[in-house]
């Protein structure tokens, strides 16, 4: 599965267009990480626990997007975008979306 955020893949051409696919996940922070972040709020700097949490969540969203693309029979997702939004207090939604396509090697 090829995933990129540009419209074409070098050396390949799009033979079928399968439409938009997306994957999302909503995550809440948990108490342990919150306490550490509370300390970190006093001295500033990176909140590593939150960074990891969001990285994991974004990977989950991407996996779901890729699964949806595979179910459609695609072998690539092009023009991928990410979006992050706070939908409730203490929870974040991460979404990944892109265009599922079938690619073939250029003759």
């Amino acid at each position: 599965m090829i995933v990129t955020n540009i419209e074409q893949v070098p050396g390949k051409r799009v033979t079928r267009h399968l439409g938009l696919v997306n994957g999302n996940t909503v995550r809440a922070k948990h108490v342990g990480r919150d306490i550490m972040a509370g300390f970190k709020n006093l001295v500033g700097g990176e909140l590593k626990g939150y960074t990891e949490l969001l990285t994991e969540s974004r990977n989950t969203a991407m996996e779901r997007m890729i699964q949806e693309a595979q179910a459609l029979g695609a072998n690539a997702v092009l023009n991928v975008r990410f979006s992050t939004s706070t939908i409730s207090q203490g929870a974040a939604e991460l979404m990944a979306y892109g265009t599922a396509v079938v690619l073939e090697d250029e003759a």
């Binding site: 990129t4 955020n5 070098p10 972040a37 500033g44 700097g45 909140l47 991928v80």
Partner: peptide, 25 residues
């Protein structure tokens, strides 16, 4: 931009970080 040199491969990469401000600031 999306213009690119001639190439054989392309793949998605990312990096993130979460930061917070200190009490004094």
């Amino acid at each position: 931009s999306r213009d690119m040199p001639e190439t054989h491969e392309g793949w998605l990469v990312m990096g993130n970080t979460v930061v917070s401000i200190d009490y004094f600031k």
